[in-house]
Amino acid sequence: MADQYLSAFAVDADALLAVAGSGDDRLVRRALTAVGELREGGRLLRVAGPGEAEPVLRELVAGRLDPALPSRYTGVLELLGPVLGESLGSAVLPGRGWDGLAGAFRAWGLVNLAGLWGRPWPFPWREAAPGHDPWPFPVLAGRAELDLIHEELAGFDPGGIDAGSAVLPGGEDDVEEAEWLLAELLPAWVDGARGRGCELLLLRDGGR
């Protein structure tokens, strides 16, 4: 059964969006140089090597964007995130269906987190995403939204997950991972971005 991979980055969203059409050859070279170290550290899932990443990066900086291929560009966010921002960590959730957690979050009163989880960030476009979901699936929380999510998570009792396990993708089998996500991972990533005065980029990849 496929797993879902989560990667978190503290970023300046404007800096990432400014990559498109920037003509920034230096950024391309920086990103390609970072591939080896990131792969050795197990921090890249999609990017197999510089040769695979370079054509996509050059399309981005040239502004030659194909709206039919959003996943081509979100696939290099795992590389651009740590190059232009800072990695906050990663995790693996076993099994499929974790992309559908918005309903569970909403049922538990985590309405701002639910809104974030199901809303794709339109990178590399600024306003309108293409007509289909990208995969990898990026979500972006701005500073004000992070404050709201921080308050939600701080007031959430993970003990309620067990009683409400029916809304989880895998039911009772997913309770332990959901508690880990809501009690440890997300609070740490939200606070990591807030503490740096940044936005939070979450990248979901792997099995839907």
Rank of each mutant, 00 (worst) to 15 (best):
F9E: 03
V11C: 08
V11G: 01
L16M: 10
L17G: 09
L17D: 00
L17M: 07
A18C: 11
V19G: 01
G23A: 05
D25I: 11
R26D: 07
R29K: 01
R30Q: 12
V35C: 01
L38G: 09
L38R: 13
E40L: 14
R43M: 14
P55Q: 09
V56M: 06
E59F: 06
V61A: 01
A62H: 12
A62V: 03
R64S: 05
D66Q: 03
D66S: 02
A68S: 09
A68P: 00
P70G: 00
S71T: 03
G75Y: 00
L79M: 11
L84W: 14
P94Y: 12
G97D: 02
G97Q: 07
D99I: 15
A102Y: 02
G103S: 03
A104E: 08
A104L: 02
L113M: 07
A114I: 03
A114F: 07
W117S: 04
W117H: 02
G118H: 14
P120F: 09
W121P: 12
F123I: 08
F123M: 03
W125Y: 14
R126C: 06
A129Q: 14
P134I: 05
P136K: 10
P136V: 10
P138M: 00
A141I: 04
G142D: 13
D147G: 12
E151M: 14
E151S: 14
A154I: 11
G155A: 11
D157P: 12
G159H: 07
G160D: 13
G160K: 14
A163M: 05
A163W: 13
G164P: 00
V167D: 06
P169I: 05
G171V: 03
E172P: 14
V175T: 03
E177N: 15
A178H: 05
L182G: 11
E184L: 13
P187N: 09
W189I: 12
V190I: 08
D191Q: 15
D191S: 13
G192I: 04
R194T: 10
G195A: 06
R196Y: 11
R196S: 02
R196M: 11
L201M: 05
L201Q: 09
R204V: 06
G206R: 09
G207L: 13
R208Y: 10
R208E: 10
